[in-house]
């Protein structure tokens, strides 16, 4: 069962990425609907009672979905590999440009040592890769107590906060 880090806690949370072919009607966990196939799932979206989220891949053009973002409480951004850094920019655009207020969740190759930066770019929850230790992931949220740049977690750069002695 996938583990989710959210609000400083790690707990089990099953999810499934819907694809156009197969649909497991018995599944009751979180359903993720790929943005590219959204039009195929409109009916499903209306009927489903379970939590659903929009699924963006790292090469998706987030600007194309600007109008529908607010109809989701959850947006997931995929990391096919953790070294694919496009998701960081996508998340910042969701937060800073579209002022998206819901939960933004990292999914895919999500590792402890990137969580601090993901959080800075506006991610609020994380499906951890299977082998990642829960307690280390929680600790990673506090890796640094100071940041030079402004970002989506805190727009004020250090240069607006320094007390000059």
């Amino acid at each position: 069962m996938p583990r989710l880090l959210k609000n400083n806690e790690v707990f089990e949370d099953d999810y499934q990425i819907l694809d156009s072919e197969s649909e497991d009607l018995a599944f009751t966990g979180t359903l993720l609907i790929p943005a590219r196939e959204l039009d195929q799932h409109e009916k499903l979206l209306e009927q489903k009672q379970q939590p659903t989220g929009l699924f963006l891949d790292s090469d998706d053009n987030v600007e194309s979905y600007a109008d529908i973002l607010s109809s989701f409480d959850l947006i997931t951004i995929n990391f096919p590999k953790f070294i694919d850094g496009r998701g960081y920019s996508l998340c910042r655009i969701l937060r800073d440009r579209y002022h998206y207020k819901g939960d933004i969740r990292a999914v895919g190759d999500v590792l402890i040592d990137q969580i601090f930066m993901l959080q800075r770019c506006g991610f609020s929850s994380y499906y951890l890769r299977e082998d990642q230790k829960a307690e280390d992931a929680i600790k990673a949220l506090d890796t640094f107590s100071l940041r030079y740049q402004g970002s989506s977690d805190d727009p004020e750069p250090l240069y607006r906060k320094r007390k000059v002695s």
Binding site: G85, R92, Q114, M117, L118, F144, R147, Q149, P157, L158
Partner: peptide, 14 residues
């Protein structure tokens, strides 16, 4: 230097 140090958005560039 300060801006680029641990810039969270650009740690995994191409």
């Amino acid at each position: 230097r300060q801006w680029s140090t641990f810039h969270p958005e650009f740690a995994f560039l191409p």
